[in-house]
């Protein structure tokens, strides 16, 4: 038995007591700008963690660099504040080494999709059992307002005074295209939905990806205002529920159906609800279509779980392979390794 297993033998599998939100608040002062969307995300996470019934010591938050990446300091669990872009890789290594831990990543659009883009796509492909929350504020906050890989075309930023000529990523499409098995979206100002999505992510094995629209009120205020302002909210937010038709709008009078492969708005009052798309989390193609809505003018943006299919996590395959080899070859023995195979004796 190795030392980690032996050390963990004494640790309880269940929390000794039921945690409260405050049990996940660390003693560090939270240092985001007042009004930043990150506060809400932190609060929702701290609200959900007690419900997961995971001992606090089994939770690890890993991050890279950026405003979002200060997250681990504020949660009273284990944590690593890593280097720029590498959170997914650090977390992958930790999860492979310790499949018994619940490993979470807090990252942002710059950290996760620009400098860390390579790690992100590969972790999706591999399906390492880590939970990734990507705070998308469509800007670099910590470095003071440069455009990010999700900034919109034409956006005026510190580094694009004449407008951004980069074309943005659609994070959900990137995740789906890279083979992610769990893809969801929520918004900092949708506490209920955000909590629900985080709960779903926690329960899923394999990599989970949650894009969270987050307002940076200092450098990119109102980037998601159509989704967060009271007056425009209902017409611009499509809440996904598995098995339910895609209906939204103030009086639930709008729907979406397909014309060929192209989504089409339906005025339910006038045309009825025949042929509306029924959400199916297991439908990969549908997930692509839903993810694509975000870049179609006039369409609402979906929130909730777009796609969730169960497949074995990378780390369990890794452990499984090791167990198999141990069964067929027997537990490794140093003497056999050193003295086995082609050796010869020299005697005097």
């Amino acid at each position: 038995m190795n030392l980690v297993v032996e050390t963990m033998n004494n640790a309880p599998a269940q929390p000794a007591q039921k945690y409260a939100q405050k049990d996940f608040q660390s003693d560090q002062d939270v240092r985001w700008c007042p009004g930043c969307g990150d506060y809400s995300i932190l609060a929702q996470v701290q609200r959900v963690l007690p419900d997961l019934n995971i001992p606090r010591e089994k939770l690890v938050w890993v991050s890279g660099i950026g405003c979002s990446s200060r997250f681990p300091y504020y949660v009273q669990t284990y944590g690593i504040h890593g280097i720029h872009g590498r959170a997914a890789a650090i977390a992958s290594g930790l999860k492979m080494a310790r499949p018994d831990l619940s490993v979470w990543v807090a990252t942002g659009d710059g950290d996760g999709m620009s400098i860390g883009g390579n790690h992100l796509i590969h972790v999706f492909r591999r399906n390492v059992g880590i939970k990734i929350l990507l705070f998308n504020n469509q800007i670099y906050g910590l470095t003071k307002g440069q455009f990010s890989p999700t900034s919109v075309e034409g956006q005026i930023t510190a580094s694009t005074p004449y407008g951004n000529i980069d074309h943005p990523f659609n994070p959900l499409l990137l995740a789906l295209g890279s083979g992610a098995g769990f893809v969801a979206r929520s918004v900092d100002r949708e506490p209920k939905n955000l909590q629900e999505v985080i709960r779903r992510a926690a329960a899923h094995r394999g990599t989970t990806f949650v894009e969270i629209y987050q307002n940076c009120n200092v450098f990119n205020d109102g980037a998601f205002s159509t989704m967060t302002d009271k007056e425009t909210h209902d017409d611009n937010v499509l809440v996904l529920e598995h098995g339910k038709p895609l209906i939204f709008g103030k009086d639930k009078k709008k729907g979406i159906r397909l014309n060929g492969f192209t989504p089409q708005l339906v005025d339910i009052g006038a045309d009825g609800d025949a042929g509306l798309i029924v959400h199916n989390e297991k439908d990969h193609m549908l997930a692509f279509i839903l993810a694509g809505l975000s870049s179609m003018p006039g369409m609402p943006r979906p929130i909730g779980v777009l796609y969730a299919v169960d497949r074995p996590a990378y780390e369990s395959d890794m452990v499984g392979q090791i167990e198999k080899v141990k069964q067929s070859r027997g537990e490794g023995e140093l003497a056999k390794l050193l003295q086995g195979g082609e050796t010869w004796q020299i005697e005097w």
Binding site: R86, I90, A91, L101, I322, K326
Partner: peptide
Amino acid sequence: HFGVKTFQAEDEIAAITSAIGASYG
């Protein structure tokens, strides 16, 4: 069979940072 975990990473940086994660664990 020695319980060795080998991870062929996507790049050199992931190779070392995954090892750092494993070391933390």
